[in-house]
Design a protein around this nucleic acid. Structure first.
Lengths: 340, 340
DNA sequence: GCGAATAGATGAAACGTTTTAGCCGCTATA
DNA sequence: TATAGCGGCTAAAACGTTTCATCTATTCGC
């Protein structure tokens, strides 16, 4: 019950307190016989290190935090898994905090983390404005790495995925397939990802210089239901104006479009091709497997963690870096049929 | 950079160190004027409490841990959200640890958590065997609450959902609709949930005492692909033996069945009715919205957290409890059509 | 106006570790 | 033989809080 401390271990093993500490932290500096005696004492007493005391002495903890917008979002869960891997390999511990897109909760989390003197923070901040809380951490010397948001700040590292390139990839693919009337589906446009993916698609179209055209349909959100509604609207167009391909800002929209089209008797990809974004688990499992732009999510987490550890370890010799990953187009059946 | 401590605050405010502590912890015991002076000093120095020192003194931390089998599994993410809510309301912090179904990682996490003297642990343990690591925590006086596994241990609380009842609900519903040939799909049977849900279905069938029959099709796992394969096999049966309803051990299987059936030209629910389990987000968004058995996932988390806090606070007056929640059938289109 | 109670503040001890300076006895070197 | 070096260990300081016993004015009851 009452947890044994290092002093009791020392007494039990007939050595000084410092020797026990040495057994724990620099085992090779203590004679084998003594070491064994101490280890025996540790097991018989069921001694467990007290991390608070250790941290107090060390001045900082061995845990790293990741603050995500939504623990239930597959994007973040994959990022977490990637980061976890690196952090655990380094012998540290990753704690996951959920801001839930609520800046008050975010602030509260950061305050607590600061009190805990965490080794560093990986974070996708709520909103896009200035970040006084994060600045405060950085001022204190706590490394902060931005994940998928706010790239380019001078005083911290960041990792992100190039959404403009993602839009480009999707568009290039559809143009390669010979589509002339293409729709981009997404919204609200205030979301940077929605805007960037559109920008990429538009840029690709312009560069190709052909006669193809891109129609934009703004949705109110990025859900399956919104995809269905948008598909209905597309179907209401006169046949000659109707797009032969739809590029969706995420996979949920794309699945909604797929469902509505097939329900109305259209064939995918023969009548309408579809490309989604995110390559969620269900993309491959859909009735018609969905082409999608895949982001290297776990690598995002891994790299973020590596940058963090580098900053935490190398201190002032550290140079902040902004790593941008390239997404990748996964072509599946939903868009795999050239136009004549 | 160098973080100010309580002593510097005291000096800056011209009071003793104890007074600063009082301002922080028992503000009403210190005169308003002094209090204000201290608060001013705190803000000008940018003082932030050192939690390690606080914990060291207190003997335990203010964080609670939840150890889940998979951070990316929607079941657990919802449980986490529920627990989070309660824990944060109590002014504590919830840290999420991922065992990834790996007992070595689980052990390592528990060791670290023990070193950190966490306030308590919510956990879905890997495997079903004895739990020496957890026993060790309990011996130390650290409250442990089991989540959705291992109900009934005498020395700890637990929360779970009644899977047998879930199977019953689904079966009763299908029988109510007049189905006579029903299939249960799921596997491997070594998974307790798969077995329990089947047991519930079988029990319901027996109690009704009608002429209906239940055919069991064992799948190799619980994925969309497995659902498709199983559906193929069902379709290969002679029409007279073919089930008119399928109850699936989870929603992924059910979605696979739905896809394969519609791809083969059968109508759901007119030709075959489907009921899934878990009520995942996509159940409602499927081409034919899926009936499913819903588990009160966030409530599972909330209750687990409440039990934990009760044990942590009330100490020896605490009585261990085993709370079992009842699942609920959500009827949607996939099974909403009575047989003649 | 006197003793008692009380509000407000103080100083020191304690929490459990890590680290550093130093001590002791031995061996290798000159 | 003296000295330096070294392996192995010890003792004590330091980390930053919280708490508790104590002290000093001030207020209250009579």
């Amino acid at each position: 019950m009452a947890t044994a401390n290092i002093k009791e271990v020392a007494r039990h093993a007939g050595v000084s307190l410092g020797t026990v500490s040495n057994v724990l932290n620099r085992p090779d500096t203590v004679a084998p016989a003594t070491r064994q005696r101490v280890l025996d004492a540790i097991t018989t007493l069921g001694y467990v290190r007290n991390d608070s005391a250790r941290q107090l002495r060390a001045g900082h903890s061995r845990t790293v935090a990741i603050v995500v917008l939504d623990v239930a979002n597959p994007f973040f869960t994959d990022v977490v898994r990637g980061a976890e891997q690196v952090i655990e390999e380094a012998g540290a511990m990753l704690v996951v905090c959920n801001s839930g897109e609520d800046s008050a909760r975010e602030r509260r989390h950061l305050e607590l983390l600061e009190e805990q003197r965490v080794r560093g923070v990986l974070i996708t901040p709520v909103g896009h404005g200035p970040q006084p809380n994060l600045d405060k951490l950085v001022d204190r010397g706590i490394p902060v790495v931005l994940v998928d948001r706010g790239t380019g700040r001078a005083n911290r590292c960041s990792v992100a995925v190039d959404d403009v390139l993602g839009g480009r990839l999707a568009m290039d693919h559809l143009l390669d397939q010979g589509h002339q009337r293409i729709a981009y589906l997404g919204g609200p446009v205030s979301i940077a990802q929605v805007a960037d993916r559109h920008a990429g698609a538009a840029a690709a179209l312009k560069e190709r210089g052909g006669t193809a055209e891109l129609r934009v349909a703004v949705t109110s959100n990025l859900t399956v239901a919104a995809g269905r509604r948008a598909a209905e609207e597309l179907l209401a167009l006169p046949a000659r104006q109707r797009p032969t391909a739809v590029f969706c800002a995420n996979d949920l929209l794309a699945l909604g479009v797929l469902q509505e089209l097939t329900a109305r008797g259209l064939r995918v990809p023969a009548d309408v091709a579809i490309v989604g974004y995110d390559d969620i688990e269900f993309a491959d499992a859909a009735a018609v497997p969905l082409s999608s732009v895949r982001q290297p999510r776990d690598q995002l987490g891994r790299t973020a963690a590596e940058l963090l550890l580098d900053e935490a370890d190398s201190g002032d010799t550290h140079r902040h870096r902004h790593v941008v990953f390239q997404p990748e187009l996964v072509v599946r059946r939903s868009s795999d049929q050239p136009r004549r």
